[in-house]
């Protein structure tokens, strides 16, 4: 059954990612990414990482992507128009990328094919995660929290209204405060 679950959600993730590429409107791209994140959360559950799976939903899908959608709505972002740059990318970049992917996949398939992963064999409990985070990784944790504080202040400073506010952005101030949410959530 877990093989079936893996394939269902892996397909969903890839479909979401492809849809992200195909769609022209930013809002559709953002929502496809939310679908990818949901599918990945299920895969994390299959890998026994409960805490990470739900934090993925809570922080990534529920906060970071809401922020993206919020900004898309705020700026009323229109479907993007093709330009010379994207044509060059299509001719050279995409084939190169496919080659890279094939190489990756070939390497991975030969290297790790005999290493099965079974659901429920190893469940990384929240307690272990906390222990590791606050003992072994205490310094990186603190450094990241400083990084966060800087990011928070920077975001507010950048998005805050200057002397003559453009009429198009009535909620600019509230958006800057909404921005800090994922940050705070992860730190605490």
């Amino acid at each position: 059954m877990q093989v079936a679950l893996f394939f269902i959600f892996a397909t969903l993730a890839v479909a979401g990612a492809v849809n992200l590429l195909v769609q022209r409107a930013p809002i559709n791209a953002a929502l496809s990414l939310v679908a990818v994140m949901g599918a990945l959360a299920v895969l994390y559950l299959l890998l026994g990482a409960e805490f990470i799976a739900f934090v993925q939903i809570l922080v990534y899908a529920g906060a970071i992507m809401v922020l993206f959608v919020f900004v898309i709505m705020l700026l009323n972002a229109q479907p993007d128009e093709a330009s010379h740059r994207s044509r060059v990318a299509r001719i050279i970049g995409v084939p190169a990328l496919v080659a890279l992917l094939v190489e990756f996949a070939g390497f991975l398939a030969t290297q790790f094919s005999d290493s099965p992963v079974r659901m429920g064999e190893y469940i990384s409990s929240t307690e272990d995660l906390g222990m590791a985070l606050f003992h072994q990784y205490l310094l990186p944790f603190e450094v990241t929290s400083v990084l966060f504080l800087v990011g928070l202040i920077g975001a507010v400073l950048l998005a805050a209204r200057r002397e003559d506010p453009p009429a198009a952005m009535p909620t600019a101030v509230s958006s800057s405060s909404a921005k800090t949410t994922p940050a705070e959530l992860v730190i605490r």
């Binding site: 934090v55 970071i64 900004v71 800087v150 998005a159 921005k179 992860v186």
Partner: peptide
């Protein structure tokens, strides 16, 4: 995730 959140906040600003 932490870095992505900070990046999203600053980047969108």
């Amino acid at each position: 995730m932490v870095v992505a959140a900070a990046e999203a906040a600053v980047g969108l600003a």
